[in-house]
Design a protein around this nucleic acid. Structure first.
Lengths: 212, 212
DNA sequence: GTTATTTCTTGACCCAGATCAATGTAATTT
DNA sequence: AAATTACATTGATCTGGGTCAAGAAATAAC
């Protein structure tokens, strides 16, 4: 608790870090209305962190110590296979959470890399901080359960899509579920996310280039 | 609570239903050791149910009211697309849990069907029963979190596999992660689970039939 | 035991998407 | 501004797995 109080004081002194919580609190309130007092308590548990483009938040082999809330910027998680090919598992934009749940929960080394695709402002939460926070603001249990639920549904939908849809259908579904992604993410990364080659994605975006 | 007590008494009168809890309690104890008293409390919340082969536990459009623990037998969950093709999402054997988490949690109509592939003995848990049980035996919170965690990891692994492996690799991975499945599940259902056609699966099982 | 269904195998053929390769076009770096 | 490096397009060609069709085995039904 001493550390949390010191952090609170620290944040007070740095106006820049103050409005970093805006989006987080807004997102929480959308699902679980909380009082200003609870908001204040909540804030004390997060570690603000800025990440420059291309910097790692997590590297394969390390234990994932944080779940990250994205206030600003964009990240991705991915694996690298034996041939050196990257396979993107997830993107995360403003208002999204990202971590390796498995490594975070079990404290086993992660098989994922997470890095910044743009300069980022993050709010990090450690396991002990999360637990203490849930004791102090029990309402948030619900919020975190909803998050887990949503990610389970999203990944199920993606699995079905990858098993029974064509490349084009998968691409359309991605655009629909995440509008604006095409403007921010390089094409070859979307291809990796969809499990298709960059060439195929390019072709289906420019129907003129289709084979005869 | 009255209902739970009545149920307890009822079970006492039917020796057949008594040993139905063996596997469940064993599975729980593997992950979260509980006392005999806690076991006894735990038992009162489950509804034993037998299901004949081909009977439904859940039909598309209905709300999923139960999570099911499989004491005996085997089930599957699946969707049917607009062309009438079945897409199998999951199998569940003895010692596994099965439900549509999304429908169960949100009480919205399910998009899945769940039916029995063999005669089954199940233990059903409703949402209110689950909540009450977790209050009475808080240790189980951990058990259920572990379950959710594991299913998230399993589905992630399957997604990676479906995006970047060949049909043969996916099949091998299925056999490895679920030994004995080939002896119990019809081949065309494994094909559906893997997102390939029955013909392709047949060919890769009999390498002689490979094309030249 | 015979018939009907369901499941599995095998063949011939086709196509979506991969691979290989070359060129064009931003972005970064120096 | 020139030079690297990273991304995107386009073409030519190949292939894993799909589709269609017809038997063969195995189960279930009567």
């Amino acid at each position: 608790m001493k550390i949390a109080e010191a952090l609170q004081l620290f944040l007070w002194l740095i106006p820049d870090a103050l409005y970093m919580f805006e989006l987080l609190l807004q997102k929480i309130n959308e699902k679980v209305p909380i009082t200003p007092e609870e908001s204040a308590v909540c804030k004390t548990f997060f570690i603000p962190k800025k990440l420059r483009k291309k910097q790692y938040l997590l590297q394969e082999g390390d234990v994932c110590k944080y779940v990250a809330f994205v206030e600003k910027g964009m990240l991705r998680s991915y694996t690298v296979d034996d041939k050196g090919t990257e396979h993107i598992m997830q993107f995360a934009f403003e208002g999204w959470w990202l971590s390796d749940q498995f490594s975070f929960l079990t404290a086993e080394p992660s098989v994922y890399n997470i890095d910044a695709l743009e300069d980022c402002e993050l709010l990090l939460l450690t396991k002990p901080a999360e637990e203490e926070m849930l004791v102090r603001v029990p309402k948030l249990e619900r919020y975190f359960r909803l998050l887990l639920q949503n990610s389970l549904i999203a990944i199920q939908r993606r699995l079905v899509s990858s098993l029974s849809h064509t490349a084009e259908e998968k691409y359309r579904q991605l655009l629909a579920s995440c509008p604006g992604i095409a403007q921010r993410v390089p094409q070859h990364m979307m291809a990796s996310y969809l499990g298709i080659t960059p060439e195929t994605l390019s072709r289906l975006r420019n129907p003129k280039n289709r084979k005869v």
